[in-house]
Amino acid sequence: MSIRLGGIIAGLAITLVLVLWSLVPGVYNFAFGPPAEKPASYAFYEHGEGPEGGYSFDGAMGKWDVGQLQRGYQVYKEVCSACHSLKFVAFRNLQQLGYTEAEVDAEANSWTVPGIDPNTGEATTLPGKPVDFFPSPYPNAIAAAAANNNAIPPDLSLMTKARHDGSAYVYDLLVGYGEADPEKAAKLGFETPPGLYFNKHFPNVNIAMPPPLVLDGQVTYADGTEATIPQMSADVAAFLTWTAEPSLIERKQTGWFVIGFLLFATMLAFLSYKQIWAGMKPKKN
């Protein structure tokens, strides 16, 4: 055996040993280390799937259900807006929900927004105009924290994009309130800390937000739809999907057009390419 071959074999052997050696601490920990402790709350978490039947805007061909968005807006206005801002949405944007200019004007007027008195220059509140953005219920983050047991209610404008599968998440969260299974809770010593609320669809099952939708019929829909809790939850989740991405449907429709054009152009490019290379392919017998 030549010296060179010996060196090579030794090199490969050392490689093998080093690679396997890298596994040792991990395997040791995995086998003999203390088991990873998961909080008891993991036993109660349930993954939700969103409303039954999904949303009208799901999928590549989805469309807004304007009636649903209007109902969702009503739920936001009458329930959520008590604590949650919607700072990236302006009243003028409501026109996209099928309201006329006059209706948007009236709707904006029904809100009060912070402003400056034109005569005295002092800070005051004014009726909203279409160009104004939805006002925050709190003057600042400290006030929001103080009013809510130190948990600041997040802005909802982008909520459905800021959570994984957000449209389903918002729905699940709103219908996920309830009681932990008492038997299981007793066995695991699980208790929802005071000031928090049990919600099986919240990642650590204890959420600071009190249940916002508690009664069927809490909101009286203008279009006569029965306002069950799942209905209101789905409606407001749809509305928040719109606030997060008003261009969602326009985007998908543009996409079909663009891809259709590209398919056509690529087909032509392929034919042209084949034509140019036609003489290059060796003939087979």
Partner: peptide
């Protein structure tokens, strides 16, 4: 390569199937 001759020089005087290149380029 024969392909180049056919395509670029139009050896037989007629640019057969040239339209596909024109169509692809204009698209």
């Amino acid at each position: 390569p024969a392909g180049a001759t056919d395509m670029l020089d139009g050896a037989d005087g007629v640019r057969r199937r040239d339209w596909i290149h024109i169509a692809a380029l204009s698209t």
